[in-house]
């Protein structure tokens, strides 16, 4: 697993993908930081995190699009799958590599907090809660993106699929207000990433939120392993 993790990390920075992801992410987070904190004399980072929610959803597919598709296209999956490494080890290695690059991205918010702390108190529970929320959101999104990437050899299709998933997660919040059936509303709301993320952004450590995001990650990691297993048998 360590070997795959190391290889994938180096692949992010051998190609422009890692740099593009970080640059775009830093640009937008800097934009929100300037607007909602520096320009409006606000010590709270909630505005930054709220703005970053959709940016994150749309940037994660860039990170995950090549994770599996690239190996399928170049047949390097033959190297991985015929090595003594287990399938789960391989999938986890790739997952963790994407997660580390993602972590590198969202860590910028901690720098923002440090910048604020030189002038005022940044209200640390909100900062740390939001950071944790962003991390959990990323974990779930990377797992979903990785799963989509394992379904196709084509990176563009993997990316578009990831954007589709992101769009679905954003639209699902609006869907609740159109539904009249209470059970359906509850079901749709329980799937909402935004609601869960919001409670973290307010500084509330919600265990159900933690469980939700970890659960989604686990399910999609498991599904990715199954996709490879199935491909072998069919």
């Amino acid at each position: 697993m360590k070997a795959v993790l190391h290889r994938e990390l180096s692949a992010y920075f051998h190609s422009p993908i890692g740099y593009v992801f970080l640059a775009v992410f830093y640009f937008f987070s800097g934009y929100f930081f300037t607007l909602t904190c520096l320009r409006s004399m606000n010590a709270s980072l909630s505005g930054v995190f709220a703005g970053l929610f959709s940016i994150l959803l749309f940037l994660v597919p860039i990170l995950t699009m090549r994770l599996m598709s690239e190996d399928l296209r170049s047949k390097t999956d033959q190297l991985l799958l015929t090595s003594p490494l287990s399938l789960t080890g391989m999938v986890l290695g790739k997952y963790l590599a994407a997660l580390l690059v993602y972590l590198l991205g969202i860590s910028i918010t901690l720098v923002f907090a440090l910048v604020i702390s030189t002038m005022a108190s940044p209200h640390w529970p909100v900062v740390l809660g939001s950071f944790l929320g962003a991390l959990l959101l990323g974990m779930a999104m990377i797992a979903i993106g990785m799963f989509i990437s394992s379904l196709t050899q084509n990176q563009v299709i993997a990316a578009v699929g990831g954007f589709g998933a992101a769009l679905f997660l954003i639209l699902i919040d609006g869907l609740g207000s159109y539904l009249t059936n209470e059970t359906l509303v509850a079901l749709v709301m329980s799937l909402s990433f935004y609601q869960r993320f919001q409670s973290f952004a307010l500084g509330i450590l919600s265990l159900s939120g933690v469980g939700f995001f970890l659960g989604v990650s686990a399910i999609f990691i498991f599904l990715t392993v199954r996709v490879f297993e199935k491909r072998r048998w069919s």
Binding site: A11, Q78, T82
Partner: peptide
Amino acid sequence: KAHIGYLPEQPPLYLDM
């Protein structure tokens, strides 16, 4: 698998390495 060294039809190479 630890007993086997495998060279597939298309060598499984990472071109960026």
